[in-house]
Design a protein around this nucleic acid. Structure first.
Length: 766
DNA sequence: CAGTGAGCGAGCTTCCGCTTGACTT
């Protein structure tokens, strides 16, 4: 008896093959083997003429999908067919989730087996799990397959119907999609918050105190109340006005803060209250894809893509379990391995009485795999594998190992202490200071693993802070008192990791796509990276504008969650998929008039609405008004973004490396001034008597000798960039003649940062 | 490199999710 087992991943095939013995041939599909045609090139000739061919979905025939085997999968399909010829039984062992079920179905459709077919499923790759799975096969779940197909078709209709609207109204080659458009919307809205943000200044007073006997270390305390009123902190300000939002707080200016500091410096501080309360801290759950990406970004500064590449290598070589998972569950073998390691490395007091159990908390988790953990029935320590791994892989393995072991350790316990002290601040009244301490009484899992933080200050704050023993009524003296000025900070930009976490929490995107979402929004010119921060381009603003105004339902943050609910119903057999797709595409007459998209459906919304979309309006990002009350706006043009005052000729290109929130009205003023300096005649060339111009172009300011050549003529006038040190304000004819005589010196473009968005990516409407 | 806010226009661009290599940015 020869049995062919097909799984999704080649690495998985190798492992399983070891468990199953010589009667079984284990091969992989390498993911999906069929899909809708992705481009015109993939559409078979006989369908090319059909009007639905571009979509790959025959709408009028009940949303019938056209499936093709992409060229890079031909070879593998051929291989599987050959293996099937020699097999007596076929086991479809793809993942037990929506996509895995669909892959199994596609395999059936393509391989057309004439031997018995079994669907086998397992959630962990251990000998016992595999053996049990092969003994207990089930049938293919047609409902689950339909749910996947519905998801696939909906994403195709959304993406391939809405993207062309963007080509017509914003720029060619742009894209819209259920996942990427929400990602772009998040990034744009965060930038808009930053643009609206008004910084506010406030002061506080920090004291360094020490007990009178002088036998303890000095400790810091901060002024929190003055004359019975709370001293304002950053969170008391309205982020959009920069004004104090809480009237019960008192705002200190520099003079007052310094006066208070001077007053209390020589005063006696009395401890008025000491409160202690115990705390416990639980270990974080074992890694899933998103949390691994998050921690690798925090602790190792890896991009999501790099994390996945390194994890893939670790997985393929048998060091960790599968890296694309949404389940934090550990197999019982893994729990045993972790618990043994806890006992042997840290001792029995670090081991909880019972194993800890973790469950997925994000919406839409499908839990086809286990958590990401060290592979095997006993974990090898980072030291044991260090020699076999390159540094990148070592670091990531170390992270995975620590997190897994820590997840099966006892809680950390400790004591938080809060101490309030008062001192007399003269005419300002009584000043109350506060300090807090944190002492770990039992480290528990912290012995193995401390979770990283996006905010280094918070992390520092989180460290143990030991206060000297203080009792109520005790008096202490100030060693040093300092008034400190602060400014409120705008909300931080998203990083790769924080954007992925945000999407995951909303159930948008899947573990296999998190890293590629980041790639896509960058490739389309919606987002660029400055360090680790994600900054939207003005193209992104225009697209979010368009989608938000004309396709609000599609970029709603709850769209995917609602879709998942419907898909679950389809998977349960409680709902037919065709009527639902029909309602999405052709509309639902029952929908309330207040929801025009639901009522009209995607098709009519586009068909009857696209022409009326005002390309200029959606591509304009208002910045405010100038002194004369004229609107100042950024517009996205054919050659990238520029600022313009009203409809006037006063406009100036924006430099590539500028972030939207850096474009203040002052900055606009400066750019327009720069622009006005260009296109002027500096004088005449003494030799040829031709005029010498100062102009600005794509690569910054340049000199030109003589008039512009006739359009289409091959003639090129003599041109040269400014030399370093020359400014548009005070270049002279002599500078120009020098530069024209010795061109090819350093131009502005050579200083352009590599990370700035490309011009083509910023380019827009035709 | 090549220097703007406009033109002549065929055919194409584009989605999400599953998985690796074979490629050089």
């Amino acid at each position: 008896m020869r049995r062919l087992v097909i799984v999704e991943s080649p690495a998985k095939a190798r492992t399983i093959s070891q468990y199953l013995g010589p009667d079984y041939v284990v091969e992989s599909s390498i993911g999906h083997i069929r899909d809708l045609p992705s481009s015109a090139r993939e559409i078979p000739d006989k369908f090319k003429k059909e009007k639905w061919a571009r979509l790959g979905v025959n709408i009028d025939a009940g949303f019938e999908p056209l499936y093709v085997v992409p060229s890079n999968k031909n070879e593998q399909v051929k291989k599987l067919k050959a293996l099937l010829k020699d097999a007596d039984e076929l086991y479809l062992a793809t993942d037990e989730d929506r996509e895995g079920e669909a892959i199994a179905w596609h395999l059936l459709e393509v391989l057309k087996p004439r031997v018995p077919v079994y669907r086998m499923v397992f959630h962990e790759i251990t000998r016992s799990a595999i053996e049990e799975a092969i003994q207990n096969p089930r049938d293919l779940d047609e409902y689950l397959v339909r749910a996947q197909e519905t998801r696939r078709i909906l994403d195709r209709l959304f993406g391939y119907e809405v993207s062309p609207v963007l080509w017509k109204k914003v720029a060619p080659r742009l894209s819209a999609g259920r996942v990427q458009s929400v990602a772009v919307r998040l990034v744009v809205e965060r930038e808009q918050q930053r643009m609206r943000f008004k910084t506010a200044g406030f002061w506080d007073v920090d004291a360094s105190l020490a007990s009178r006997e002088g036998n303890t270390e000095p400790f810091g305390a901060r002024l929190i109340e003055l004359d019975g009123k709370r001293v304002a902190q950053g969170r008391d300000f309205n982020p959009e006005t920069g004004e104090l939002a809480n009237s019960d707080a008192v705002l200190l200016d520099e003079t007052q803060a310094k006066a208070v500091a001077a007053n209390v410096e020589s005063a006696t501080f009395a401890v008025v209250d000491v409160s202690e309360r115990p705390f416990t801290q639980r270990p974080p759950a074992p890694f899933i894809t998103s949390s691994l990406q998050q921690e690798a970004a925090r602790k190792l500064r890896y991009s999501a893509q790099r994390t996945m590449q390194v994890a893939q290598r670790l997985y393929e070589n048998g060091y960790i379990t599968y890296m694309r998972t949404d389940s934090p569950t550990l197999s019982s073998q893994a729990v045993d391995a972790a618990r043994r390691q806890v006992t042997s490395l840290y001792g029995g007091e670090y081991l909880p009485d019972r194993p800890r159990v973790y469950t997925a908390k994000s919406k839409g988790a499908q839990e086809a795999h286990e958590a990401i953990r060290p592979a095997g029935e006993t974990f090898r320590t980072p030291d044991q594998v260090a020699r076999e791994l390159d540094p990148d892989a070592q670091r990531l393995y170390d992270l995975v190992w620590k997190r897994t072991v820590a997840s099966q350790m006892r809680d950390a316990t400790g004591m938080r202490t809060q101490v309030r002290l008062t001192a007399d601040a003269g005419e300002h009244g009584a000043a109350t200071f506060q300090t807090s301490g944190k002492v770990i009484t039992f480290p528990g899992f912290l012995r193995a693993y401390v979770e990283g933080s996006d905010d280094p200050d918070a992390e520092l704050e989180d460290q143990e802070r030991v206060l000297p023993p203080l009792r109520q009524g005790q008096e202490v003296d100030a060693r040093e008192v300092e008034a400190k000025g602060h400014e409120t900070q705008p909300p931080a930009r998203y990083t790769e990791a924080s954007l992925i976490r945000e999407l995951e929490e909303r159930g948008i995107g899947r573990p296999s796509t998190y890293a590629s979402i980041i790639q896509t929004v960058q490739d389309r010119g919606y987002v660029w990276k400055k360090g680790t921060a994600l900054i939207p381009t003005f193209t992104a603003f225009a697209v979010v504008n368009l989608l938000g105004h004309h396709f609000p339902d599609l970029v709603d943050y709850g769209f995917t969650a609602r879709m998942e609910e419907r898909l679950d119903e389809i998977a349960e057999g409680e709902r037919q998929y065709k009527p639902w797709l029909h309602a999405f595409y052709f509309g639902d007459p029952e929908a309330p008039a207040s929801e025009p998209m639901a009522r009209n459906g995607l098709h009519r919304t586009i068909d009857e609405g696209w022409e009326a979309i005002d390309a200029r309006a959606i591509s304009s990002i208002p910045l405010g008004k100038d002194d004369e009350g004229r609107e100042i706006a950024v517009r996205v043009g054919r050659y990238g973004p520029y600022v313009q005052i009203g409809d006037s000729d006063e406009r100036a290109s924006l430099p590539m490396e500028i972030a939207p929130d850096e474009i203040t009205l002052d900055e606009v003023e400066r750019l327009l001034h720069q622009e006005s300096l260009s296109d002027r005649v500096l004088g005449n060339d003494p030799e040829s008597h031709e005029p010498v111009y100062l102009k600005t172009g794509r690569y910054g300011p340049y000199f030109q000798l003589g008039e512009d050549p006739e359009p289409k003529s091959k003639e090129k006038p003599r041109r040269a960039s400014l030399w370093p040190g020359m400014t548009m304000e005070d270049v002279t004819l002599e500078d120009a003649l020098m530069a024209l005589e010795f061109p090819k010196t350093l131009g502005k473009h050579q200083r352009t940062a590599r990370t700035s968005p490309s011009r083509t990516a910023q380019t827009a409407r035709t």
